[in-house]
């Protein structure tokens, strides 16, 4: 069987180069955020899969710091928006401003609207505490995330490429907030939990950092390179058996499709399957492999599916969470579709 045309030696070289540079980027981010390797890997996978990320964690765990370090390490233009209830859509997308200019031909002042881009017009947008903004503002963000463009007064304004939204939300102090609707949650590739650091990590933070000090981050990657790596990731081989596993895994999230999903109200969408495939490829690129595998799917299943599964009241009563459900699904859905003969027993999935 002949290899695909794209999988030649230069492709493998480019892949090795990408893995190397992404490794450097990971190192730079680890200089800023101690003890958050899983979070950093999730962010890198999200970047390579060209997906938007939703970070959830308590205040002070370094979410904003991570985004700032990322923008410096990649050399991208980054902007930060603090979402508040009185934030209007125009505040993030930009507003048309009436501009008056002397026109020599008509010998009079000519007035016209000129679009003043908002903070969304950046490569990396940090939407801090996104759930505090009104639904109207959140929906304005929706179009920007999905279409990668902003429409104001009937005119579409494309956003810069690459464009990433990294939103954060606080799991506490939910009074006066507007929880993100399912449609908007589905636009985020990953929802990553930012865990609390342990004692050893805290000790290292205390020793290495001071309040107000900006850690030195070296720029190891350009925006163009990141875009090229993302393109490379899309070309990685996804074996048919892995694609089949993704399809069965997503299908099993729906009620009635698997014993584990009995307490699910709504399962994951086809967009989740696409996200799983893209994230698996991106993870393979991070590890310098030519193909994605079952292990990649299992590794990214929780951040991809966790926020896309809506549980019913019985799950809440029994203390089940989307995370635990995804874990059950990973155990329940066999990686290989073939049924094991009853005369054989399996040691592995």
């Amino acid at each position: 069987m002949k290899p695909p045309a794209s999988m030649d030696a230069s492709f493998e070289e480019a892949l090795a180069n990408a893995a190397l540079k992404m490794g450097r980027l990971r190192g730079e981010l680890q200089k800023v955020l101690f003890g958050q390797e899983a979070l950093i890997e999730g962010v890198l996978i999200g970047l390579l899969a060209r997906g938007h990320l939703l970070l959830e964690g308590l205040p002070g765990l370094g979410k904003t710091e991570l985004v700032k370090a990322l923008s410096r390490a990649i050399g991208l233009e980054a902007k930060r928006i603090q979402f508040t209830p009185d934030l209007l859509p125009g505040d993030i997308t930009g507003n048309p401003i009436l501009h008056e200019q002397w026109d020599e031909t008509t010998r009079r002042n000519r007035r016209e609207f000129q679009f003043a881009p908002g903070p969304l017009f950046a490569n990396l947008v940090l939407a801090d505490e996104i759930n505090r903004a009104s639904p109207k503002t959140q929906s304005a963000l929706l179009e920007a995330m999905q279409e990668r463009r902003v429409t104001v007064m009937g005119t579409a304004h494309p956003l810069p490429d690459p464009f990433f939204v990294i939103a954060t939300q606080n799991p506490i102090e939910l009074e006066g907030t507007y929880p993100l609707p399912e449609a908007q949650l589905d636009r985020f590739l990953f929802k990553l939990d930012v865990p609390r650091a342990g004692t050893a990590v805290l000790e290292r933070i205390i020793l290495d950092r001071g309040i107000g000090e900006e850690p030195a981050v070296e720029c190891v990657l350009t925006g163009e390179e990141l875009a090229a790596f993302a393109t490379l990731a899309r070309q990685l081989h996804l074996p048919p058996s892995v694609a089949n596993y993704i399809a069965r895994l997503v299908d099993a999230t729906h009620p009635g499709c698997s014993p584990a999903a009995q307490s699910v109200r709504f399962g994951a969408s086809p967009r989740a399957a696409l996200a799983l495939a893209a994230a698996s490829r991106a993870r393979a690129l991070l590890e310098g492999r030519l193909n994605a595998g079952f292990e990649d799917v299992a590794a990214v299943a929780l951040p991809v599916l966790g926020h896309r599964i809506l549980l019913d009241y019985s799950a809440r009563i029994s203390g089940q969470t989307p995370g635990s459900l995804v874990g059950q699904l990973l155990e329940a859905v066999p990686r290989q579709e073939h049924e094991t003969p009853r005369l054989l027993k399996t040691q592995t999935a």
Partner: peptide, 22 residues
């Protein structure tokens, strides 16, 4: 081959190699 990939934790390298990738 897929079975061996899974059991030996080969990240689907055998299946991909059979398809000519890697």
């Amino acid at each position: 081959l897929i079975r061996l990939d899974i059991t030996l934790g080969l990240h689907s390298r055998l299946e991909s190699a059979f398809a000519g990738v890697g």
